[in-house]
Write a protein that binds this DNA or RNA. Structure first.
Length: 370
DNA sequence: ATTGCTTAAGGG
């Protein structure tokens, strides 16, 4: 809320959809030319050299090894849900990055239903306003404007939804959106995460664990933000945002309508930092997850998550070790092989093939002809 | 710009 009224432009997502065209020119990046020496990229990474074939491949050199997954996937930051998906199955998450947009119709129908339930709840607390953007600076500016309007709303009205969070964690920038924040009757700041379910039953422990990890990450990042631990310098460093690049006219207009006189993204970032740290925002006291049935909206159960800081940090360290190229991805343990049953990548999964789990499990009817 | 770039979450 606290957005400009004007609700005819509420088309929300609208266009973002088929435009991941991304013409991917083979980026012929020859980094190894005379760059003196103090630069040591890979961790003892040697040439793959499957048969002693050394250099002499000037173009597609970037394809194999020597680059971290962050670089290979051309990522500057990760989503919180990337890490919670990674918690479910790291190998599956990797396939999801390699082969994006690979969902069965049934699965995406469930996701769509969940998304619209979330949208309906969001609309209960504020209108949506479409702000046309043309650059990533614009996109971040809108995010910042949302933060600037939501903080006072939380403090005065006690409830906000879809609050953006971001912060460097273990060397990687993590970006996410908190479903809901509100103050309880006892004055505690509570994060409420809604999970909708196709069938009217509580999820298995593995999924609860993933969801607990997700909300724990939100608290981890949010707390760092209000404690001034998330700096604009860090954000700029990870995103390559240009603080002085002129903002688009619609963004500037939106800012003015919101009562913010800013001329650049840098101004906005400073305002956000000040607002976060000087608004008397507490750290999050309670983490709550509510599971409801999609069709009937019946509450299936509520989880109160005990925040274990060191445990969260250890997990994040482990997950980030993959992202920065310190270790290979791994699939699930044998006892969680049941997850493969609903995985879109099960039949191409190298983890399954290479004995991550005995291929004797499941698929009794998969007679190996030939 | 001898090289760029991203709405996050959606559920299992």
């Amino acid at each position: 809320m606290a957005e400009t009224r004007e609700e005819e432009t509420v088309s929300a997502e609208a266009s973002g959809f088929s435009d991941l065209s991304d013409s991917e020119f083979l980026d012929l990046e020859d980094t190894q030319e005379s760059s003196t020496s103090p630069n040591k990229p890979g961790p003892s990474s040697e040439l793959p050299g499957k048969d002693g074939k050394l250099i002499s491949l000037p173009k597609w050199k970037r394809g194999l090894d020597v680059s971290s997954p962050m670089e290979r996937f051309h990522l500057k930051y990760l989503y919180v849900t990337d890490l919670s998906t990674q918690n479910w199955c790291e190998q599956q998450m990797v396939y999801g990055k390699e082969l994006p947009g690979f969902l069965t119709p049934e699965k995406s129908a469930v996701l769509d239903t969940g998304a619209s339930i979330h949208l309906a709840r969001e609309l209960e607390v504020h209108d949506l306003v479409t702000v046309p953007i043309t650059s990533k600076e614009d996109a971040w500016a809108v995010k910042f404007l949302n933060i600037l309007s939501m903080i006072p709303t939380l403090q005065s009205e006690g409830r906000i939804r879809e609050f953006p969070v971001f912060g460097e964690v273990e060397g990687v920038l993590l970006v996410g959106v908190i479903d809901e924040l509100h103050y309880t009757a006892r004055g505690e700041l509570e994060l409420a995460e809604l999970k909708t379910r196709r069938r009217p039953v509580l999820p298995p422990d593995a999924q609860k664990k993933k969801d607990c990890f997700q909300v724990s990450l939100y608290k981890y990042i949010f707390d760092a933000m209000v404690q001034g631990k998330v700096t604009t310098a860090s954000l700029i460093h990870h995103t390559n945002l240009r603080p002085e690049k002129p903002l688009g006219p619609s963004v500037l207009r939106h800012a003015r309508q919101g009562g913010f006189s800013v001329k650049s993204l840098g101004d906005l970032m400073e305002l956000v930092f000040l607002s976060l740290t000087l608004s008397d925002l507490p750290v999050i006291d309670i983490l709550k997850i509510e599971y409801i049935h999609q069709e009937t909206a019946t509450v299936l159960g509520t989880e109160i998550v005990a925040f274990e800081e060191t445990e969260v940090r250890n997990k994040v360290q482990h997950y980030m070790a993959y992202w920065v190229g310190h270790r290979e991805p791994q699939g699930v343990d044998v006892e969680e092989a049941w997850k493969c049953r609903t995985c879109n990548y099960a039949d191409i999964c190298e983890w399954r093939k290479s004995g991550g789990l005995p291929n004797s499990m499941l698929e009794p009817q998969a007679k190996k002809a030939k």
